Simulated scan of single mutants.
Amino acid sequence: MEVPPRSGASAASPSTGRKRSPQKSKRARICNVRLNDDEWSRLTIAARTSRKSLPAYLVRAGLAAADDSENTAAVIADHRDLIAELFAARRHLGQVGNNLNQITRAINSGGQPAELDAVVSAVRRAVARVQAATDRMLEQD
C-alpha cells in the first residue's frame, strides 16, 4: 500500500527527481559527525563523484567497512605498524651491515677490532627483529 504524499509535499525529491523511499525503510536514527575543513572537502568531493549525498555516502562507506572484517581500522592500523617496523628493521640492518663491512675490512688488514662482539650482537638483534616482523606478517594471512 502506497502512502499518499502529505499536503504540500511531492512524491519526488525536488533536488534529484527520484521517488522517496517507502516509509518502512526510512532511517530513524541520527548520528552527528564532526569534520575538519579538509575532511569535509574530501568527503564532499567523493560523495559528489559517486552521485550521492554526503550522508548517503557516509552510510554506504561505513557499512562497507563494517561488512569487511578483514579490513577493519584495527587491522589496517596493525598493517601500518607492521610496515613501519619492517622499514625500521631494514634501516637497522643497513646500519649494522655498514658496521660489519668496516670490521671485515679491518680484519682483512690484519687488525682485531674491539667492536666485533658488539656488531655481531647487533646483527643477531637485527635478524631477530626482521624475523619477528615477518612472523607477525605470516600470522595475519
Rank of each mutant, 00 (worst) to 15 (best):
R48I: 01
Q102P: 01
Q23Y: 12
V130H: 00
N71S: 15
R129Y: 05
G110I: 05
A122D: 04
R136V: 02
I30H: 13
I83K: 03
E85L: 09
L100T: 11
L100F: 05
R124H: 06
R51A: 07
S15E: 08
Q140W: 14
Q131S: 15
Q23H: 10
R6E: 07
P113K: 00
S41Y: 13
H92G: 03
P22A: 09
M137R: 11
D67Y: 00
N98H: 03
M1L: 11
S13P: 03
M1V: 10
R29D: 11
R91I: 01
M137C: 14
R34Q: 04
A64E: 05
L58G: 06
A114N: 07
H92S: 01
Q140N: 08
A66N: 05
N99P: 03
A46G: 02
Q95Y: 03
V96G: 04
P14I: 07
D135W: 03
N101R: 02
L63H: 03
P22R: 05
I107H: 01
N108V: 02
R105I: 07
S109C: 04
M1T: 09
I30G: 05
T16Y: 08
T104V: 10
D141N: 13
L35F: 11
H92C: 03
V96K: 00
N32T: 12
R129V: 08
A47Q: 00
A56F: 01
R129M: 09
A56Q: 14
A77Q: 04
Q102K: 08
V59Y: 08
L35M: 10
I76G: 04
V3C: 05
A114F: 01
T104A: 12
V119R: 03
L116C: 02
R124M: 07
L54V: 13
Q23W: 10
